[in-house]
Design a protein around this nucleic acid. Sequence first.
DNA 1: CGCAACCGTTCACTAATGCTACACAGCCGG
DNA 2: CCGGCTGTGTAGCATTAGTGAACGGTTGCG
Lengths: 223, 223
Amino acid sequence: MARDRRNGATEPEYASMGERLRRARQARGLSLRGLAEVLGVSPSLISQVENGRAKPSVNTLYALANELGISLDVLLFMDTKPPARGAAEAGTADVAESLDVGVPHDPVQRAASRTTIRLGSGVVWERLTTESIRDLDFLHVTYEVGGESSPADAFQRHAGQEWGYVLSGTLTVRIGFDEFLLRPGDAISFDSSTPHRLFNAGDTPVQAVWFVLGRGSARVAHR
Amino acid sequence: MARDRRNGATEPEYASMGERLRRARQARGLSLRGLAEVLGVSPSLISQVENGRAKPSVNTLYALANELGISLDVLLFMDTKPPARGAAEAGTADVAESLDVGVPHDPVQRAASRTTIRLGSGVVWERLTTESIRDLDFLHVTYEVGGESSPADAFQRHAGQEWGYVLSGTLTVRIGFDEFLLRPGDAISFDSSTPHRLFNAGDTPVQAVWFVLGRGSARVAHR
DNA sequence: CGCAACCGTTCACTAATGCTACACAGCCGG
DNA sequence: CCGGCTGTGTAGCATTAGTGAACGGTTGCG
């Protein structure tokens, strides 16, 4: 009979799912009873689910994911998912842990009063934080028409990872041997150690929000 | 005042979920009975699920998604269906798009195909990365008019730090006892362990890019 | 030191429902 | 007419998701 599965598990691993749920809940500072009341279920149910002793219904699982803002896919498929490459797994946890240095006095950086750096080749960086932070850049970037992060024959390569979101214009990104065209609303994330080059091949300026992590040190030391 | 917290609001739309399932199955050329046998369930169950007459258990839903290679997020969260961009043929294009969820190693997250999570209180999260990453969220956030990250009397509090950039609308941010009004172009960064609450007190939706780091890593000390 | 108010965990019971079995209607080629 | 395929409804049973009360462990206050 074809009853047994060839593709391995047909059943989610409720144990690890419970752990992920627990961590998500605790990260939100929610108590077991508090979350239970919001969802309209009993606290014991959530406890049992988190400990893998009970399997929630789709309704409650949905509500759970919804309330905690967590993806159902990572919740259920985490173990069977293909491994992430590059930017994904590359020690973001370490970076995050060592980042607790320094909380800015003024959290708000107004659009009008940004610190601006004009780079040579048609690129403008505007800092989106009120003070500079070690190993972290939160930037508003403008690529003038023809602007480029580096000459056509020279690629950037540095430590860290970066994430970008294009506000307007069309930004061309080369990462390794791959080339991507980012239009407004598109986002990108990649490991900065992969040679990359960003330029504006369009006919309107490109504006984007950029987030660079761990640029300074080879690998942010932890602990 | 928050909306009804108890029941109702947090429930997947089984009707549209059934439609997506049906199209995914048909796109694979699977008959109802054929799929049923592979999964080890009865054909009538699948028929009922596809017609929204029955709610599957987590087990069968998982097996279903697994076998059809479809994402649980697009399956359950109703508004995850991205509008086809320049689609040639309606039916097949839709199905094809919803089926290629497993695109691996793509650094680019297109605006049209973001994974979307609709939170209860007028807040929509759209993931700006192609895969979910531990301890890191890169998000496009929408606060509907009156939308709020948490009820007026409940503040968020979790591990990590976050950075935000407002694209449009006016976002009110309360951090501890301070309140800030963010207009388009303004940015903010703060420690997530400080109680905070974000809401849209304006009369237009707020759109923002958000970056959260280390949400799941360390647990916040409890008082 | 109580005492209270939280926290999460356990366990037996039951109300709810996921699922099956079976019968049914429609369509096609022989 | 078949025999085989498609998907559909219904009745009912077996499973289980969910409850509520009790438990032990911390924390903080008077």
